[in-house]
Amino acid sequence: MTDSTSNLDQNGTLYITGAGVSAESGIPTFRGEDGYWTIGSHNYTPQEMATRHMYQHHPREFLRWYYHRFATYRHHGPNDVHHFLADKNLITQNIDGLDGKAGNPNYIAIHGRLDQMTIYHQQDQPVDIVAAPWDNVDTENLDNSLLALFNINGQPELYHSYKPFVLLFDEYYTDLYRISEAEQRMKSAERMVFMGTSFSVNITNMALEIARQRKIPVEIVDPNPVIVPYANTTYHRLRASDYIQTA
Score class of each variant (00 low, 15 high):
residue 35 G to A: 12
residue 140 E to D: 14
residue 195 M to T: 07
residue 132 A to E: 06
residue 28 P to N: 12
residue 40 G to T: 06
residue 175 D to L: 07
residue 145 S to F: 00
residue 176 L to A: 04
residue 133 P to Y: 00
residue 227 I to F: 11
residue 161 S to F: 01
residue 200 S to R: 12
residue 54 M to I: 08
residue 174 T to C: 02
residue 123 Q to C: 06
residue 222 D to S: 11
residue 74 R to G: 08
residue 32 G to E: 11
residue 99 D to S: 15
residue 75 H to G: 03
residue 143 D to I: 04
residue 218 V to Q: 10
residue 154 G to C: 10
residue 88 K to H: 10
residue 150 F to Q: 08
residue 206 M to H: 13
residue 170 D to H: 03
residue 239 R to F: 05
residue 187 K to Y: 00
residue 161 S to M: 04
residue 168 L to I: 01
residue 97 G to M: 08
residue 156 P to F: 01
residue 15 Y to T: 12
residue 206 M to P: 06
residue 56 Q to F: 02
residue 232 N to H: 09
residue 21 V to D: 09
residue 108 I to M: 07
residue 100 G to R: 14
residue 160 H to L: 05
residue 52 R to V: 05
residue 98 L to T: 11
residue 112 G to V: 07
residue 117 M to G: 12
residue 205 N to Y: 01
residue 137 V to N: 13
residue 164 P to E: 07
residue 227 I to H: 12
residue 85 L to R: 13
residue 37 W to M: 05
residue 144 N to T: 13
residue 5 T to I: 10
residue 204 T to F: 00
residue 102 A to F: 01
residue 30 F to V: 05
residue 81 V to Q: 07
residue 14 L to H: 12
residue 154 G to D: 03
residue 195 M to G: 08
residue 29 T to A: 06
residue 229 P to C: 05
residue 103 G to H: 02
residue 135 D to L: 09
residue 218 V to P: 12
residue 133 P to W: 00
residue 153 N to H: 14
residue 144 N to V: 08
